[in-house]
Design a protein around this nucleic acid. Sequence first.
DNA 1: AGCCGTTGTCAACAGTGTTGACAAACGTTG
DNA 2: CAACGTTTGTCAACACTGTTGACAACGGCT
Lengths: 212, 212
Amino acid sequence: MARLTRDLIVSAAIEVLGNVGFEHLSVRKLGEALDADPTAIYRHFRSKEELLRAMGDRSLAEVVDDLPMESWRACVRELCIRIRAANLAHPALASLVRGAPPRHQNELLITETILGQLRRARFDAEAAAGAYHAVIELTIGSAAIDSTLASMPTAAREAIYAEWRADYAALDTSSFPHSVDIANALYPGTADDRFVFALDRLLDGLETQRSA
Amino acid sequence: MARLTRDLIVSAAIEVLGNVGFEHLSVRKLGEALDADPTAIYRHFRSKEELLRAMGDRSLAEVVDDLPMESWRACVRELCIRIRAANLAHPALASLVRGAPPRHQNELLITETILGQLRRARFDAEAAAGAYHAVIELTIGSAAIDSTLASMPTAAREAIYAEWRADYAALDTSSFPHSVDIANALYPGTADDRFVFALDRLLDGLETQRSA
DNA sequence: AGCCGTTGTCAACAGTGTTGACAAACGTTG
DNA sequence: CAACGTTTGTCAACACTGTTGACAACGGCT
């Protein structure tokens, strides 16, 4: 037998995901796409959640390759940017990381890489753990927020940002003076730019805290 | 008749949510808690999503009340902590923020408060906008990540953290030396603690960047 | 009192994830 | 090669889910 494999199922699931969207990805539809009985999937995955996590891990495949190693900041920074990009590429999968620990190979590699960089930079165990959680939280969280907008074309996205700026500018000046005042400074550049800015500030804070 | 009202249903739903967790909050369980027929809820809410939205609205209501005003950091910090708490109580709200449909009054108030604090602290328009986006991204994103776990009882949550630490400790030492090494330093304290740590580091970075 | 719209109740539909029993194919061993 | 045990695919079924339509009971109105 052995028509199905974990990899094959994951590939089919990602394709179905692209067609019907995350909320309508069901085990039965997946079975149909595989031209197999839906419950055959349970011979390869304990539960649907396990399958979803495997899909998420697939998207992280090449994230830790050829990272810059000249400094812990450069390495962690680049790694976070790639994680974000991977999560944004498959927006639905980004939400899967919620509440899930890095149990899969690629996720474990990411954790190991970050922790290794921090330890090499003389963070003690508690500081390294704290910095790891902080950086991951910002990266994954930011991707979760931006995922919906990231999937639309640049022009449409820019139009939406402009619309939001206009909304702020059109507010009642007496109730929302500051919002009106700097409305056209909001949503500057791309969402990626804003994320990198936040990441750099967070890394600043982590660095000064370590040296203190 | 009129035993049920929207407010009454929302209150009961919030209570049920605290008991069984978000993914197990079903219309039937809610009906049981109200001692009424489950479908009676549909006389007051068009759909379950509308109910979830109403729950989110309620939780965001008092977020900007009585904020500490002695410094911009204290104010923004407290505000972010409250936003996170509100979002954790009702994860559906986080997913609503992502779509960015009509902007609610409470959300506008939050933006205005943060921007006002930053301007009062002499951030210029661009810096204030950047800091605002950074802080919101971490806060909302972190809440999105932690939402699933936050809705389960403390004991079960602690058990899960312990399990994750054990997973890291059981990894292959040669492949994951650092993960194994500081496994029991991971997931320290509560998820709230870890968020506040990250937020403080980010605020550190934003502050030093402003004075530079 | 009589009407009418609102609300609670019930049964049912179309889905969902998941499990247990049974059968076909495989890899390994005698 | 034959026989075995394990793995995998198939099928029916269970226990759920959100939601809808029909029906009855109640409240506020003229």
